[in-house]
Amino acid sequence: MSLTKDNNHNFAATPQSLSDWLRPRLPSDSFASWGVKPGTKNIHNLWLELSEGETSLADSTPPVRSVNVVTVRIFRNDKILIESLQELSDGNVRDRCRPLSEKMKPDETPEEAVFRAVKEELGSIVSGDVVRIVPGSYLKKVEERDSKSYPGLPARYVLHSVDALVDGLPEEEFCTEEAEEYLDSKVEVDKAVCVRKHHWKWVSPDSIKS
């Protein structure tokens, strides 16, 4: 059984109840590092993901976090745009070294997620209808690995990847500011670890790990 926003009322009605549910199901040292170890997120982040339907948790020990993610491989000439690092609200910096990626919303198509992801993460530097998805570039694969954001919590990522062209981006390295998310849960957002700035650069596609 997967626990989502529609059936999580008992175990995740609040961040505290979610924490109480997770604690006996995860290694204690790993769970204690959430939001403390640099680059990790905290229980408020996971609660927000669940409340927005971006994440589901399998009712198992340990639980498995399932997420649909869209990856946008933005090309210019012979280079691809990667997010080199993120500046977080807790003052830490997280290395990324990957193309633009964003968790998908419930019932969102990959194409819809692409346009939203570009708007949210690059919107402070580009505007208007500037995204062109390369026809036939869509790929889907599943990866299972431990979550770097939530140590000790196994994750199953359904990755939806497309190639795209985005007009108006700088030719050199640049940074963008993150658009606000979860506007209906402002109190919990203030307690979560959020991305303040994204740093981007153009690299050779051969340097990207598959």
Rank of each mutant, 00 (worst) to 15 (best):
N68I: 00
G91W: 12
P99A: 00
V126S: 12
K197E: 11
T4D: 15
D59V: 00
N8F: 03
E52A: 14
I125C: 10
C175Q: 13
T55M: 10
A117M: 09
L3P: 00
K79T: 04
S2C: 04
P63H: 03
K103D: 07
S149H: 07
V187N: 08
P15W: 00
H9S: 11
M104N: 02
L153N: 03
S66H: 01
V72Q: 02
S204D: 14
V126T: 11
K119P: 01
K141M: 10
G39I: 01
E178Y: 01
G39M: 08
L46R: 00
E177H: 08
S30E: 14
P38R: 10
D167N: 10
S124C: 07
E120C: 04
S84L: 06
C175E: 15
T176Q: 12
E111P: 01
Q16C: 04
P38I: 03
R25K: 15
F115Q: 05
N45Q: 07
K140H: 15
V93P: 02
L18Y: 02
V189L: 15
K41W: 11
S147N: 14
E54G: 00
P154E: 11
M1L: 12
C175V: 01
W21A: 09
D163W: 01
N92G: 09
L85M: 11
G53W: 04
V64E: 10
K37A: 14
D95T: 10
F115D: 06
W47A: 01
P62F: 04
A155D: 03
V114S: 02
E120L: 15
G35I: 05
D107M: 09
F115P: 01
Y157P: 01
S185G: 03
P15G: 02
S161R: 07
K209H: 08
R23N: 07
D146T: 03
M104W: 00
F75R: 14
